[in-house]
């Protein structure tokens, strides 16, 4: 399912049905997105049990949110990621762990994208634990962009929608995040 997403027509139809209380459509959304959301949470949280708990709650919150007729939902993908993001933040807050934030305005100012020209080769073999360890030391926004763009292969426009950012900013953030990831991996090696 990596890189696969519901098209607009499907999304609208499933959202409409969920609003009308159709649990089968909810099941369909679960089937489509559970792997993606699981990967996203897994790469950001240490404990497997906690990951499973959060993923389950993400979908329950999604159902409640969509069922509430006061809420307007345009994009299932974006909504699921934003719920997961906020639940991860809650988790870190309650666990008393500091999360690295980033002064994004500083980072984005005058930045031009070198993403396409930057060398992509690295003399390190990655495994899941290594990636998790390095991601943990990166700002949340970089983690999000790395996972969404390079692990999930989402489009810039989708990432922008999920993170509530401009598409141009996402492009720059992706470049920066990849650069930092490479540096951290090299320094660890």
């Amino acid at each position: 399912m990596k890189g696969q997403k519901m098209n607009k027509h499907q999304q609208d139809r499933e959202l409409r049905k969920i609003q009308d209380g159709d649990e089968q459509s909810f099941g369909k959304v679960y089937d489509w997105y559970v792997d993606k959301i699981y990967r996203y949470v897994f790469l950001k949280i240490g404990s497997k049990e906690k990951v499973e708990e959060i993923v389950q709650d993400v979908f329950l919150k999604f159902w409640r949110f969509v069922r509430d007729k006061e809420n307007e939902v345009k994009d299932i993908n974006a909504l699921l990621y934003s719920i997961a993001k906020s639940m991860i933040a809650d988790y870190y807050r309650s666990a008393g762990e500091n999360i690295i934030s980033l002064d994004e305005t500083m980072m984005i100012e005058d930045e031009t994208s070198e993403e396409e020209t930057m060398s992509d080769d690295i003399d390190i073999s990655l495994d899941i634990e290594k990636v998790k360890g390095v991601l943990k030391r990166m700002p949340q926004i970089y983690q999000d962009v790395i996972i969404m763009k390079f692990v999930e292969e989402m489009e810039h426009s989708e990432i922008a929608e999920a993170l509530g950012k401009e598409e141009g900013n996402v492009r720059v953030l992706a470049h920066r995040a990849l650069k930092q990831l490479r540096e951290l991996l090299k320094s660890d090696d």
Binding site: K2, R39, D120, D121, I122, D123, S125, L126, I128, V131, I146, F150, V151, E153, L178, L181, R182, L185
Partner: peptide, 11 residues
Amino acid sequence: MTSLREQLKNL
């Protein structure tokens, strides 16, 4: 030398 993006994609 292997591509970092490729490795991330294949996790």
